[in-house]
Simulated scan of single mutants.
Amino acid sequence: MILTVTANPALDLTWEIDRIEIGGAHRADTGAVRAGGKGLNVARIAQAQGFEVCAVTTCGGATGAELRDELDASGVPHVLIPVTAPTRRSVAWVDRALGDTTIVNERGANPSAQEWSAFTAAVRGRVAAASVLVISGSFPPGAPSTILPELIAAGAGRPVIVDTSGPALLTAADAGASVLKPNRAELAEATGMADPIEGARSLIARGAGLVLLSLGDDGMYAVTADRMLRARLSEPLAGNPTGAGDAAVAAAATLLADGDDDPEHILCRATAWSAAAVLMPLAGEIHPTWRDLERALILDGDSPVPAAPHDPEEPV
């Protein structure tokens, strides 16, 4: 079973617009509403690919009730910890003309000490049945610095994947996470290093086992203590990148759940699923042609990192 942990879930709202004009008024068809947050997206994808999952997250207020109802309808097994603060929202505007997406994420509110205690207890109570633990997404402002190390420690004895940003990324490396999945901007922010490979290697030196470094259109790197590989498509795909990073995490989790920890296998599957997510309108899904994308990948070893200041992956 793959256990996913989402400490700062969101009610995802998505609208498709013919073309976005800054300062203009727009009309759109009815938008899509989905229980979101990176760990919930990971659980959706893994379950759709035939894997047993359980998603642990929180819900609060009217938005939390919508999240709960949608998650109940989705069929994804889950455990919801009630909190007082309303669940945050994440809004995505998909520009059909440009083929890109603009995202605004609310930061979220910090649960109380008692609510955090219930949350971590729920994870500890279910991790014994898990083959892989996935901790995905941001933590709300003011969250105790001890929460992430506690969650990683709860997963001792099994692979632990962490997809987060800011100081929490360094905390996860220090705590010995098996896999970290930053994008270029997140890595630079956390490490202060302009060279993403140097940044990835610094996370390995701190205790991480594997860094999956997403570079958007330029593909993905797998960096370990003794290997560096890059996988990419010959041309970038147009679509909605929201959830592409979550698809990469789901790919890593499913391979690890099957006992495959080869960095090359994880890199290729993660790159293919990430690309397949771009082809879907909503986060938490991958296109059924992902096997074709995987076969089309170009795999390089020790290749230079392209200088690309824009990374289309969504913030957490």
Rank of each mutant, 00 (worst) to 15 (best):
R107H: 10
E186D: 06
V53D: 01
G142C: 06
L203T: 07
T191K: 05
V179K: 05
L293R: 08
R34G: 00
A248T: 11
R269Y: 02
E264Q: 15
P182W: 09
A122F: 07
Y221A: 00
R96L: 12
E16F: 08
R158A: 04
A251K: 08
A296M: 12
M220H: 05
T146G: 07
W273V: 00
E313I: 09
I197D: 11
T14C: 03
P312M: 08
A205G: 02
G192H: 07
E21F: 03
I152E: 02
E235W: 03
T30E: 09
E21W: 05
R27N: 00
A270V: 08
T171V: 13
E150V: 04
A73G: 05
A55I: 02
S117D: 14
L169F: 07
T30P: 00
G39W: 02
L180F: 07
G99L: 03
E150A: 15
H26A: 08
A32C: 01
D195R: 13
N105Q: 11
P288M: 11
L11N: 06
H26V: 07
P288D: 14
A118V: 00
A46H: 07
G259D: 05
T58R: 11
A231K: 12
P77Y: 10
G219R: 10
Q49V: 01
S90E: 00
G24S: 15
L98M: 10
